[in-house]
């Protein structure tokens, strides 16, 4: 059995202590603790549905060592939506624009979009496509996902958010 490690970290704004295995990835650690909005699609960093913010940057949680998150800060789609205006607006735009089909890639997409927009991402479809190019979607053809992120970027540009 791998060593068990207690880590203290902030998840979705709340300080928590988790017991994780030495070799465990952050994805499993989060899901084992009922952060179900972080999905598992491949577990080798190739699909992006497990994307979370780690210290403010979008990362694939399946390629992050859970133990190494001790003292760091994690935000997931659900937590971001409940706490930040930007993500809540992105989520609403996904609903309005028909960006959600099966929804399995959606939490990761919303987190990747949050990263893009909070770092000054512009309403530029090519740049948006680049920003979400680590997140696979098999249902939508990406068009309406780009629509939603573009819409929020436009709102930001026009000072509406």
């Amino acid at each position: 059995m791998s060593e068990k490690i207690n880590i203290k970290l902030k998840i979705n704004g709340v300080f928590v202590t988790l017991e994780v295995l030495a070799h465990q990835n952050l994805l499993r650690a989060l899901r084992d603790n009922y952060y179900w909005d972080v999905k598992c699609g491949c577990e080798v960093g190739e699909c992006g549905t497990c994307t979370v913010l780690l210290d403010g940057q979008a990362v694939k949680s399946c390629t992050v060592l859970a133990a190494a998150c001790d003292g760091h800060e994690i935000w997931t789609d659900k937590g971001l939506g409940l706490s930040t205006k930007l993500t809540a607006r992105i989520q609403d735009a996904f609903v309005e624009c028909g960006s959600v089909q099966c929804g399995f890639c959606t939490p990761g997409m919303v987190v990747a979009a949050t990263d893009y927009l909070k770092n000054g991402g512009k309403p530029d479809r090519t740049a948006i496509r680049e920003a979400i190019s680590g997140n696979l979607c098999r249902c939508t053809g990406y068009v309406k996902i780009v629509d939603a992120i573009y819409k929020v970027a436009k709102d930001i540009e026009e000072g509406l958010l």
């Binding site: 030495a22 070799h23 990835n25 577990e43 080798v44 960093g45 694939k60 399946c62 390629t63 992050v64 060592l65 133990a67 190494a68």
Partner: peptide
């Protein structure tokens, strides 16, 4: 370090039974 190689190595069994130094 980042873990993007090491985590898949752990999953596939390429890395076994060692101490991971972050």
């Amino acid at each position: 370090a980042g873990g993007t190689n090491v985590l898949p190595y752990i999953r596939s069994g390429k890395y076994t039974d060692c101490r991971l130094i972050n």
